[in-house]
Amino acid sequence: MRLSILMLALTMAVSTAWAQSGNDIDAAALQQRLQAIDADAGTAGAAAYERLQARQALATLATVRSSQRASALQIAQWRVETAEVAAQTEVARRELGELERERAQLLVEASQQDAVRARQEAERLRIQAQIQAEEAARLRLAAEEELAARQQAETVLQGVASGEAAKLRAARQREAELKRREAELLKSLEP
């Protein structure tokens, strides 16, 4: 609040001094540059200290003797340039901060999306594993039923002549082949 009052008082003092000193083109140009910083919505609140120093330098310029005018004008130019650079720097810092916050938000969103995709993939793999386990159980049951049928057939074949023994050997070979297939299937289903 005090700074605002001081700035207003300096602005009025500078304006009064301009009126008294006549048409000073350089000083008026500097005053316009400083007013442009104040009028710009993006820089209006930025670099308050530097703008105050520029106003003080302009007020001093309006009151100095003509012998000191050149150095006072140079100082006022430097102060106005410093205020402009400081205001632009502060605006750039604000924009950078906002961009960094936006980037962080985007990274969080991307991370959340990655987590959702990972959960979906895990669920898909779980279902696939469950289907494979069910298929393996079904094949195992079918193999057990076939084995039981073979064993029953072997009992019948024991009482049969040598011609029937050849059939028995064929059945055993088939059983061995099925066991081998079952083992291969089980091995292929293992994660």
Rank of each mutant, 00 (worst) to 15 (best):
A9I: 09
A9R: 09
M12F: 02
V14R: 06
Q20E: 02
D24T: 10
D24W: 08
A29L: 01
Q35F: 04
D38C: 04
D38Y: 10
G42H: 10
T43N: 00
A44G: 04
Y49G: 09
E50I: 04
E50F: 00
L52F: 03
T60H: 07
A62H: 00
Q68V: 01
R69E: 08
Q74T: 14
I75G: 01
Q77T: 14
W78K: 11
R79V: 06
R79D: 09
A87D: 00
A87Y: 00
Q88T: 08
T89D: 04
E90G: 02
L96P: 00
E98G: 08
E102C: 06
R103S: 13
R103C: 08
V108K: 14
D114Q: 15
A115Y: 04
A115P: 03
A115E: 12
R117N: 13
R119E: 12
Q120H: 12
A122Q: 11
R124V: 05
R126T: 07
Q128I: 05
A129K: 06
A129S: 10
A129R: 14
A133V: 06
E134A: 11
R138A: 08
L141Q: 13
A142T: 01
A143M: 04
E144T: 09
L147Q: 11
A148K: 03
Q152E: 10
E154C: 01
V156L: 15
Q158G: 02
Q158D: 10
Q158N: 08
G159N: 05
V160D: 05
K167W: 14
K167H: 15
R169F: 04
A171E: 15
R172N: 14
R174E: 15
E175V: 06
L178S: 11
K179C: 07
E184M: 09
L185F: 13
L185A: 14
L186N: 09
L189G: 08
E190A: 08
